[in-house]
Nucleic acid binder design. Structure first.
Lengths: 227, 227
DNA sequence: GATGATTTGTACGTATGTATA
DNA sequence: ATATACATACGTACAAATCAT
């Protein structure tokens, strides 16, 4: 990412930061499900710390949208309405589209080759039908694009958005069908990048993200907007 | 804005939140200039509170980008490099373009009329050459567009970005020339909105924002990207 | 509706790490 | 290079508000 991390707080030298990362992991991995109440004292005991750094960690998580605070009423893992979730996915799609558009015009030769390599590696994973591995490679692919936009504020924003959506993205690639489709869409996007048509790449990326969110919305039973 | 405020922290019932708003005002208004060191104890004395809520306020400001924290080394008002400032302006421009594009397709008749009224009111202000008043009306105009996008996450994001840039936007409308130009650009944008061409409105909005940032970059002596 | 238990919000003191002499 | 000074990070205690009884 960047020298100034997405949340604005320098990396894990403080206890609060350590706890923040730990909690974020538990939330994004699903160990702490959306809607779960979080008790400061319990977390403090669990991490062997006092309430002070825990409070700071929770505040930081709140500003990144992973938890919601209600003054004097406690903290809980963010549980988004399907409406709001749709809005988040839409913003994610548009943000990714912006990234690839800028990246098309600005990425270096090295970055272009690196992106192609990432894509080729994932091709093999599609054959093996290894969902977990593809999930990781997919993240790497998209993250590479964020940075290739050569706008670190935008890149941080994109990473933060992805993190915020993480709790709702599990089981994204249910069915090898979706997995193959995802890879094919990446292929089309790269083709436009290589041709230097950022606008087209952006449109394809937006569609790619909205397709993914629609699939997810269907899975969650909600209704993702713009599906 | 929204039921969940941009920072994720519900409005001013806690001391920490009060202090946060107070400090944010001082920073965005320029009373606390970029680069200024902020001393917890001093702020605590000034607000008649202890250091604890001050710390929380500073943490919140850090995650919205208004201040930067260095663990055990203190806090200072964010002083952006001209490079990073350019990146921020670029993201702002693209975000605003996105807002107007979505708004074009989604705004209600009421919202459309309201936007036109805001625009007409500012026309009068241009004649009077009242810079401060135009500045406020300009903010209202843009904010109305954020909400008309009918994506509250996006709207919150846009508001947060604008706030983050506020310390660097003073003296934005130096010279009545720039003021008239701004108004004319708004006019062109509205025209496209009324014609229902969201893409065109977006392009014009992006150019509008980049023009403004370029003017500002010139004023600040830096080099805003994309000028 | 009032009271008590629980949890958060705030205050303050100590420890630790950074910067300076 | 060592030591001193200083501000922050953390821990603990108290106060206040919310929720349950």
């Amino acid at each position: 990412m960047n020298q100034e991390s997405a949340s604005g707080v320098p990396p894990g030298v403080t206890l609060a930061e350590t706890i923040r990362v730990g909690l974020a992991d538990e939330i994004t991995s699903g160990a702490l499900a959306p809607g779960t109440e979080i008790d400061e004292q319990a977390v403090a005991r669990r991490f062997g710390a006092s309430r002070t750094p825990v409070r700071e960690a929770l505040r930081a998580l709140a500003s990144s949208g992973l938890v919601v605070l209600s003054p004097r009423r406690g903290v809980r893992v963010a549980a988004l309405t399907s409406n709001r979730l749709g809005e988040l996915f839409e913003l994610m799609a548009e943000t990714e589209a912006l990234c690839i558009r800028l990246a098309t015009y600005r990425m270096t030769a090295v970055e272009r080759v690196a992106l192609q390599m990432l894509h080729q590696q994932s091709a093999r994973t599609v054959e093996l039908d290894d969902i977990d591995r593809y999930d990781q490679q997919n993240i790497d692919f998209h993250t590479a694009i964020y940075h290739a936009s050569h706008n670190s504020v935008l890149a941080d924003h994109a990473v933060a958005l992805r993190l915020r959506l993480a709790p709702f993205r599990r089981a994204q690639f249910r069915g090898e069908l979706r997995l193959r489709q995802s890879h094919a869409e990446h292929e089309a996007i790269i083709a436009q990048v290589l041709q230097g048509d950022g606008e087209a790449a952006g449109r394809l990326m937006r569609a790619h993200m909205l397709t993914a969110s629609a699939a997810l919305a269907a899975y969650l039973g909600g209704s993702g907007r713009g599906a």
